[in-house]
Design a protein around this nucleic acid. Structure first.
Lengths: 198, 198, 198, 198
DNA sequence: TATGAATGAGAGTTCATTCAT
DNA sequence: GATGAATGAACTCTCATTCAT
């Protein structure tokens, strides 16, 4: 395969993955048919099989795209400031992306048990990289004494669970901030002027 | 209809609902077909329609069964002790049920938008009742000054999100306790000897 | 079987047939399920099979009831007057019954080809008796010279077809009269003051 | 889509519609399943959904095909002659088509009440166009004084009802002519040598 | 006699997958 | 590379029919 052809193929694949990621992020696995993906790309269903062997393969790759993009954006946040500031920024950005772009994200990362090990592994890796971003800041905060946790793992897991569910109840920017502040408490950071409003 | 027959029918309905709840709790709405439910009950698909008018009806009733049972067990916990003790007990029990019995429960309570209003309402009511159990304790803790929160709603939502996701990563009793303690931090209760183990 | 029991059975059968005839007259064969019939009788589906071997049997018998009742009422019309008056009265009464009570009658008498010969024969006999009522008057009118027809059979058939379809377009009493007058033309009786209004 | 492909698709659609129209014309809506249509085309049920979104859509389109074809043939009849001659020709042709090709046509044009408005409208339009052919001749005959009617609407309706029912009793060409002549009486045209043969 | 329960065939529909062109 | 077409399995739902009690 010539380089030119390979490049072209790469572009095509990327277009498919981006589109699929969008749709999956909006409606989740069972909510998206290959017809939907093809339609939005102005292509026919059959064509997708030229690039991917099955729906699962396509979905896995698309989730990879989506997850990578997501993590990239978190990593691109400014590095300076205290762990507290950086964690809060991370939380806000994460929630913002979840709410605005990938409302169905939660469902996506829960891969069905009967998928091939290969694909499960790829998504696991994705989660790990994503997780590392948060873990680094939390651990730094622990070292500096700013943070207190029962254990790192459940803390991170609780954070992610809450953020993924956010699209269900968070409506506006104020909701995002309140949720971020609430999650800061998981590392022992109590906001300056805590309230008790419903 | 004679009493004896009515009782028998009740039993049958309960058997169906229990079975359906189990399967739904394991695999979620789209993961369960009526064939699956019928198979596990050793009857044919069509028979289910003798008791329920549609899949949605059956599923709604099953979710109701599952949710009511769940909340009942939380409400049955001993009433005494400080809010801190009671919230921790609630969290532990909730996580235990989620992990051991209804690993896919999370997805269940997110009712599809296109369901009949009637059924949406029933499930909403269920969620409200469930929520009230936690809310009462949290508010008591706030009044007594034991708890601190940014706002009650996101706190409860984060708790529930984390607990529902628990089946994915929690494996043993220690995991349950660590998660419960972690979530206690959402109300500002820091454990006596906080650690930092991964 | 004692006489008392036989009588009771007869009553039950009649009740079923009347109800079935009603429903069939309203909605036609495919529009009525045994459940519908049973429901309206406050009985269960299964019970019907104690009296009838199959849906077709029940339907045939019900059509017989309906058809007999219908013909009875036509025969009960006053005998006096000219053939013209009597035919017009017959037409009006027939249309009235079709429109008000058995809007789906047309479909009913068109028995599916694959029904057992026995049942086809019974319905044929019914139609014949019904037909005889009109035929008698038409033939009398022909003998008396009041009527003119191309041939008796197609005349009668056209009359019946039009009357059976009447429920689709006839709305009020005026519609009934206009249709009856129109059909009188089939025997050469032109109304005194013919119009041409749509 | 290339022209060649579009043409091929058109042919396929036409084949489906023709087949469906045939079956529908024979057995009516409820008497035809998609399986039946697919079988006769030597394809599987699912394939039909590649061309039509639902049974109703397919049926509507098929009825449209059938109805258009029918009306086309009536409109193609020679235009000359008196209204009497032309109406008789129309009646004969209409009955011939009904008897030979679409014996169940009657039921087809009675669209179920719960169909989407869109489809009801399409079939209504069809009926209107069909009706117009007869109405034009009848009105011309009225203007020229050849015809006499009670009212135009019931006259046309009675004609159509009788013709649609014709397949039930008309057997041969003589039957067709006798029925046509009989229906001419609805507009006051009495045949030259009226008989009274049964 | 009648009931409640269950069955099984068949309906319409969806969709991942295949394949000749 | 991509398309249009077709497939076949799975799904929800309906209903005439059977049968133990």
């Amino acid at each position: 395969m010539s380089q030119r052809v390979a490049r072209k193929r790469g572009e095509r694949v990327r277009a498919i993955l981006t589109t699929a990621a969008e749709l999956l992020g909006e409606r989740g696995y069972e909510g998206v048919s290959l017809e939907d993906v093809a339609d939005r790309l102005d292509v026919t269903k059959g064509s997708l099989y030229y690039y991917f062997a099955s729906k699962d393969e396509l979905v896995t790759a698309a989730i990879e795209t989506l997850g990578t993009d997501w993590t990239d954006r978190l990593e691109a946040l400014p590095a300076g400031g205290t762990p507290t500031d950086r964690l809060r920024a991370l939380l806000r950005e994460h929630i913002r992306i979840a709410v605005r772009e990938y409302p169905a994200a939660l469902r996506l990362f829960l891969v069905p048990d009967d998928w091939p090990e290969d694909q499960r592994a790829r998504i696991k890796a994705l989660r790990r990289r994503h997780d590392a971003v948060f873990r680094a800041v939390v651990e730094e905060g622990l070292r500096s004494g700013e943070f207190t946790v029962v254990a790192v793992d459940p803390t991170l897991q609780a954070m992610h669970a809450a953020m993924s569910q956010a699209p269900v109840w968070v409506r506006d920017d104020r909701g995002i901030d309140r949720l971020a502040d609430t999650l800061m408490m998981l590392v022992g950071v109590v906001p300056v002027r805590p309230g008790s409003a419903g």
